[in-house]
Design a protein around this nucleic acid. Structure first.
Lengths: 335, 335
DNA sequence: TAAATCTACGCAATCGATCCCGGCAACGAT
DNA sequence: ATCGTTGCCGGGATCGATTGCGTAGATTTA
């Protein structure tokens, strides 16, 4: 069995105390340059690697942060994760990703798991199903720092990172209007998500700006965020049965867009499909559906910002009372 | 600052020794049922959570496994990760995912990072760029268990989990032939990947089976796995310049398929695009490109199998000398 | 009744790194 | 000559959980 070399081994080998070795390795000014060099050389020659577990125990910190998202197989989140990693690694933190699959139980389980002191903080984007926030209350009570991004909750005092969903939604809807469509409906995400309400407002804004009538009957919600194709098909069937022929749809996410396009494929020839615009960070959607107008979120930047804020919280020596709600702007890609 | 309750706290509160508490919590037979119940009740009432870090230090194990893939924003890998998680969580392991982005340096860095004793074992799918395996040799020398999946290396004595790439490639190519195409080329991944060679063989098999001529000029490699769109465009341009008009392409991965479709979109009207078939686990590709014939890998199962093998290695009390090369079958989806 | 066996628990060391206290020597200052 | 500094370094406790060993007291056996 392989046994890694420890500080004590070095100390014994060089006939000095472990304290000195530890200090030399952390480049303490208290250690003579000569001694330091001897230690460092020996350490390098024998491939000494600090045991992060022991170090964590001593410091009461794990130098890792947990990420809770609905799924990684999603352009937005995978880009956000890249942003998270870029900051985290630069600051010496591990990133532990966990997926809720938009299921409440899994979200609770994952947060519980991560929070039981194996991470120093959490980056959370709420699951679509979650309406009960007691697990988050728990976190708060436990004093574990966390930052929300994308799908946030406003009930908690902490940093949040989002985009201007309302304006993004307005722009997307406006682009459909600009193309001449007048009977525009909205395929929305789960109703309790923060982003859902905001995007709906933007949709209404655009209609109002153009003196188009709004009615709740224009909106269909997908309670599982499109995870169940049936809910999308139901929505599409509903649209098909409206008195007014739907000529365009503003869709809240790329998963929904994907499902929506597929549903229409099964239903009718492409020529009859309504136009679609919506939030999406998927390159492939654009690639394969060239006329698809989409609202891009600065996912990477959001990940970066959220992580910076989280690490700030983690490393803060004093309790933080001032929290920021960072709102970034979206970019619209039209064709 | 929040301070979690420890075993010592419980011991002090109940006026017993920490050892007893520890043993009670791990349900030792040496502890009286009455005492045990007192301790368990107190622990639950005060929400005691075992400190995994201290536990890890003591056991020399971290109960976490590292996953090194090129990227999570990839249907195959995200499905594989779901499989990995399902097994890992069930057996009490954390999963730490890291992405190489198909870059050699990042792969080395990530493996180094994970291996420095913060994980008990690694699940690795090689980066497209990697040709130097010394960092893996290092792992081996260090005695850290690892299992390869998908993109494997045969130079090492360990378990591997793959699919029958050759047969999958043959089937995909055959499906193109069945549709009447005769001038079929192959858009391949990075040449040093195990999957690349195997899929090429399958491609050749199909041509041979049908008395179609094979030549190396039919194959274009993407050294960065399609990460750089330009390399795909070059390949497509190359195909366009062949004497024989290319009427179908067998593509090695969904990322490449995506890029390929996009490249053709820029080049010529859809009607003139060659047919495409290839390896892909992407639902969206299928959704949006309904005539796309694809070879599905049992990604979830591969993740499961690899993780089970890895945990077996980790938990084995004796050195393991017998290694398995698990090969699963692919499924072809034609239209 | 004495000895052997159990039951149930405590003591103290351990995992590796870190850090609070000191301590000692050398040197300049008074 | 004595005191105060400064530079360098060691001892030992600590983080929290775990465990080999030991043992008091109860119970059983010879």
């Amino acid at each position: 069995m392989y046994k890694p070399i420890t500080i004590k081994d070095i100390a014994r080998a060089l006939a000095i105390s472990p304290s000195t070795v530890s200090r030399a390795l952390s480049d303490s000014y208290e250690i003579n340059e000569v001694t330091k060099k001897r230690i460092l050389d020996y350490a390098e020659a024998h491939k000494y690697k600090r045991n992060p577990i022991a170090s964590s125990l001593r410091h009461g910190r794990s130098y890792s942060i947990g990420v809770v998202v609905c799924e990684v197989a999603n352009s937005f989140f995978s880009q956000a994760i890249n942003g998270i990693e870029s900051v985290a690694y630069a600051k010496g933190y591990h990133v532990i990703i966990s997926q809720s699959h938009d299921a409440y139980e899994r979200e609770v389980m994952n947060i519980e798991h991560l929070a039981s002191r194996s991470v120093d903080g959490l980056l959370i984007s709420m699951s679509a199903e979650t309406t009960d926030f007691s697990h988050i209350v728990d976190l708060h009570g436990r004093g574990l720092p966390f930052v929300f991004f994308d799908r946030i909750i406003n009930e908690f005092e902490t940093h949040t990172v989002t985009v201007n969903n309302r304006e993004g939604a307005r722009k997307a809807t406006q682009s459909l209007i600009d193309k001449g469509f007048r009977h525009i409906v909205h395929l929305a995400n789960a109703p309790h998500l923060s982003i859902t309400a905001e995007r709906l407002e933007g949709f209404k804004d655009a209609l109002r700006d153009n003196q188009l009538p709004y009615s709740d009957s224009l909106v269909r919600y997908c309670h599982h965020g499109g995870r169940i194709q049936e809910e999308i098909e139901d929505a599409v069937a509903y649209y098909a049965n409206l008195d007014q022929k739907v000529d365009a749809i503003f869709v809240a996410s790329d998963r929904l867009s994907m499902g929506c396009i597929q549903a229409y494929h099964q239903l009718q020839p492409v020529a009859q499909h309504p136009a679609i615009a919506g939030f999406s960070n998927s390159d492939s959607l654009n690639m394969l559906q060239p006329d698809f107008t989409c609202v891009r979120q600065p996912a990477f930047e959001m990940g970066r910002a959220a992580t910076e804020k989280l690490i700030q919280l983690i490393e803060s020596r004093y309790p933080v009372y001032h929290f920021e709600n960072i709102v970034l702007e979206t970019e619209i890609i039209t064709h």
